[in-house]
Amino acid sequence: MGAEPTPRREVVTGAPAGRTRAPYPDSSAHDDLAVRKLMRRQVRTGLVACSLLALPLGLFPVVFRLLPDGDTSRGAVWLLLGVAPYPVLLATGAWYVRRAERNEGDVNGR
């Protein structure tokens, strides 16, 4: 029961030289097209979700500038900062998840 030699460590940064990647046996042009279509739809969905979040949250400085100075507006500012973003975040997140699952279901044929 002697000590077994440890295997030589290798750093893998890509495919071995001289080898090409074999295509999957069931891949076809139709599958590639479906994946590209899914990726475009998911990117579009993500951009819409980001814009739905950026627009209302980006308008906060404008709303703060329009509010008059005083003690009553200070409470409104904190209410706006502390409460208003969360329903927007939750609604946008729920919409995004439903839309992303629908996109994947359309590609998978469900």
Rank of each mutant, 00 (worst) to 15 (best):
M1R: 10
A3Y: 08
A3C: 05
E4Y: 07
P5R: 12
P5T: 10
T6C: 09
P7D: 04
E10N: 00
V11M: 12
V11C: 09
V12G: 03
A15Y: 04
A17H: 08
A17W: 06
G18P: 02
G18M: 08
R19A: 12
T20S: 12
A22L: 14
A22F: 01
A22V: 10
P23D: 06
Y24E: 13
Y24T: 00
Y24C: 05
P25W: 07
D26N: 08
S28N: 15
S28I: 12
A29M: 05
A29C: 05
H30F: 13
L33H: 14
A34F: 03
V35Q: 14
V35F: 08
R36K: 06
R36Y: 07
K37Q: 11
K37T: 14
R40I: 04
R41D: 11
T45R: 04
G46I: 05
A49E: 03
S51T: 09
L52M: 13
L53M: 14
L53T: 05
A54I: 09
P56V: 07
P56I: 02
G58N: 04
L59G: 01
V62D: 01
V62P: 01
V63G: 00
V63A: 14
F64C: 11
F64T: 06
R65I: 07
L67W: 07
P68A: 02
D71S: 11
G75P: 02
A76F: 03
V77A: 13
V77H: 07
V83C: 06
V83I: 09
V83T: 07
Y86I: 03
Y86F: 15
L89V: 13
L89S: 01
T92P: 00
W95E: 00
V97E: 03
R98L: 10
R98K: 12
R99E: 08
E101N: 12
R102M: 07
N103A: 13
N103Q: 08
E104R: 15
D106L: 11
D106K: 07
V107L: 11
V107A: 12
N108D: 14
N108L: 15
